[in-house]
Amino acid sequence: MIRYLPHPVPVFLFLVLIIISGFTLSIEVRFIVSVMLLLLFTFHIHGNKILRTIVRIVIPLCIAIGLFMTFIYPETEQWLTIAGIRLSRDGLTAAGEMTSRILLLFTGIIAFFNLITIQRLGSYLYQNNLPVWLVFILINGLKFVDRFKYKLSEIHFYQRLRGMPLENIWQRWKATVKILIPLLYFMIEESSNRAIALEMRGFTATTRRTTLKPDRQSTIDKIITILISGIIIFILLRSILL
């Protein structure tokens, strides 16, 4: 099991490399790189989470796009007919092109957000002088979603107790407004309190920031950063010159 947790910089460069590769590599290479990445992630500490997300989101999307592009490609002549279903060569090529690109891009994005948590990303960006309010939104955004869901179910429960009808679409539509107004009022109040508390503690001060544990790159991170940067420069130069 690989326990190495990389620094945000090499992971971000890795994501950039994946995005560039998604638009420059051939279909076969994209599939091979995707499979190699998936195999690599199976041995990582967050491997299960990454693979679960890929199976839940990416595979159904790839299958749907593959089927769609293969069978509904009306402007080209048919290449093969199986049980009355037409297949076209152009359709198959387009299916391969799209599914390989999505598999590679999505694998990169899913890996990025699993290898670097939003909290660590926010902490790194804060240390690098990103405006404090931006870090506040980035980190608290997800926390507020949980609060939003909790408060939503609470308000929904009490509105139901008060006899709010939810039988037809019109009643549900009216209920949406009746639920959202107290919910938003509560959320804005709570968020304002947090923001004022931060302001009182001087979080928006523009003086130089110091941290107890600076998030520095290790030697392995530095080597990976140099390697990925080199590959990105090579791919860009190759695509410009050829």
Partner: peptide, 27 residues
Amino acid sequence: TPPVFSLMTVGVAINLGMGQVVALLKI
């Protein structure tokens, strides 16, 4: 200002959480 970025946080939560509202009220 603090009220603005606190509302922006709520805006992010609404964008991400509306799926829950839609599912709960079946809209």
